[in-house]
Measured scan of single mutants.
Amino acid sequence: TEDEKKIQELLKRANGDVSKAEKLAQSQGNEELARRLREYANK
């Protein structure tokens, strides 16, 4: 999905570090994506 692409892109930029990727999403003002990242990471 589009969200998964965004999540994978963020994870790439954060070198696979979920908490960093989450902070990136939040810094972009994207709380929804940050929440999805957390769920994605907890799979």
Rank of each mutant, 00 (worst) to 15 (best):
T1G: 12
T1N: 12
D3L: 15
D3K: 05
E4S: 08
E4F: 13
K5D: 10
K5C: 15
K5M: 12
K5S: 10
K6S: 11
I7R: 00
I7N: 01
Q8M: 14
Q8K: 15
E9V: 02
E9S: 04
E9F: 00
E9G: 04
L10R: 01
L10T: 02
L10K: 02
L10I: 10
L10N: 02
L10D: 02
L10Q: 02
L11G: 02
L11C: 14
L11W: 00
L11M: 06
L11K: 01
K12R: 13
K12A: 14
K12D: 13
K12W: 07
K12P: 03
K12G: 09
R13D: 11
R13P: 02
A14S: 08
A14K: 00
N15V: 04
N15E: 09
G16A: 03
D17N: 08
D17T: 01
K20T: 09
K20N: 06
K20F: 12
A21Y: 00
E22Q: 07
E22K: 03
E22S: 07
K23F: 09
K23N: 07
L24N: 03
L24V: 05
L24P: 01
A25G: 00
A25W: 01
Q26I: 15
Q26T: 09
Q26M: 14
S27H: 08
S27Q: 14
S27K: 10
Q28S: 10
Q28W: 09
G29A: 03
G29D: 04
G29W: 04
N30F: 13
E31P: 11
E31M: 12
E32Q: 07
L33P: 00
L33C: 05
A34F: 02
A34C: 04
R35V: 07
R35T: 07
R35C: 10
R36K: 15
R36E: 04
R36M: 15
L37Y: 00
L37N: 00
L37I: 15
R38A: 06
R38L: 09
E39S: 03
E39M: 03
E39Q: 05
E39P: 00
Y40L: 15
A41G: 09
A41H: 10
A41Q: 10
N42H: 06
N42I: 09
K43F: 11
K43L: 13
